[in-house]
């Protein structure tokens, strides 16, 4: 079938679709609340029909008709082969090495792919306190491919996070190994409304690999607290097709829980 591309999409929609492109049909994916859930369910409904999901609250391979409200929404157990405990998923699957892809998010992400979801300022007396790790640290420590979907703002991308909640490459290519993490060289991919960045395991730093349609390198640099190196010739993220947008809007997030900026044009 010929692809009919659409330019009538929001930043959130293309972020979710682009992130889904990193998921393969053979993957076991641990879901996270928000756009990650949208991206993963979209992948299952399009190019990765064989993908299976696990969820920290204990749900194993559920069939999710649409994106649930949270990872502890009762529907997260819908048609699962097992609804077990948190330990079974984070311990017996993620820590055990059975999960291929994990999604993470946070208030800050730095050039080494470290994530802060704990606090701004002194941890004993923080200026702003965030929720904390939850399942994130375990996923960051043990999963070989990490996907991060986030809005691209300068304050979100400092050179160094104020608190490492979930380790990326910590301080360089051998940072994880030195710290004692068995998964020494995970792939880390960051999808924003401006670009895609991917970790270079030899430098331990994020590199700019693709731009969102219409976005310039300058614009990325202006909105980033470090200067990601360019990986090869800058490609553009593929536009969504009309068929993809229909599935995303009508099947994956029919109640517009996540994709509220439905009609907003991409930020250019």
């Amino acid at each position: 079938m010929e692809k009919v591309y659409s330019e009538n999409y929001s930043g959130d929609e293309l972020m979710a679709i682009e992130a889904s492109r990193f998921i393969k049909s053979t993957d076991t994916v641990i879901l996270g609340t928000g756009l990650p859930m949208v991206a993963a369910i979209f992948a299952q409904k399009t190019h990765a029909v064989g993908v299976n999901f696990v969820v920290e609250s204990g749900s194993i391979d559920p069939i999710l008709p649409f994106a649930p409200f949270t990872v502890a929404d009762p529907i997260i157990g819908h048609m699962a082969v097992r609804t077990g405990s948190l330990r079974e998923v984070l311990g017996c699957m993620v820590q055990r090495g059975l999960v291929d892809v994990g999604f993470l998010g946070g208030a800050e992400i730095d050039q080494f792919g470290n994530i802060n979801s704990t606090c701004i300022g002194d941890p004993q007396s923080p200026k702003v306190r965030f929720p904390g790790s939850g399942g994130a640290n375990c996923i960051a420590s043990c999963v070989p491919k990490i996907l991060i979907i986030t809005e691209h703002e300068k304050r979100r991308f400092p050179a160094k996070v104020q608190f490492i909640t979930s380790p990326g490459y910590i301080d360089g290519p051998d940072g994880r190994k030195k710290a004692g993490l068995k998964m020494a060289k995970p792939d880390i991919i960051v999808v924003t409304d401006l670009c895609v960045m991917q970790i270079n395991p030899d430098t331990g730093r994020l590199e700019l690999t693709k731009l969102m349609p219409g976005v310039t390198i300058d614009e990325v640099y202006k909105n980033t607290g470090f200067e990601p190196r360019l990986r090869g010739k800058m490609g553009e993220v593929e536009l969504p097709t009309e068929a993809e947008l229909k599935i995303l809007r009508e099947e994956v997030d029919p109640n517009h829980i996540y994709l509220k900026e439905f009609s907003k044009q991409p930020r250019t």
Partner: peptide, 23 residues
């Protein structure tokens, strides 16, 4: 309430993560 109690130092917070706590 949790957030403010920590920010205003009215409550102690000991952070672990989910797997560590369940273990």
């Amino acid at each position: 309430q949790f957030r403010r109690a920590i920010e205003e130092r009215r409550m102690e917070a000991e952070d672990y993560d989910h797997l560590t706590m369940v273990c």
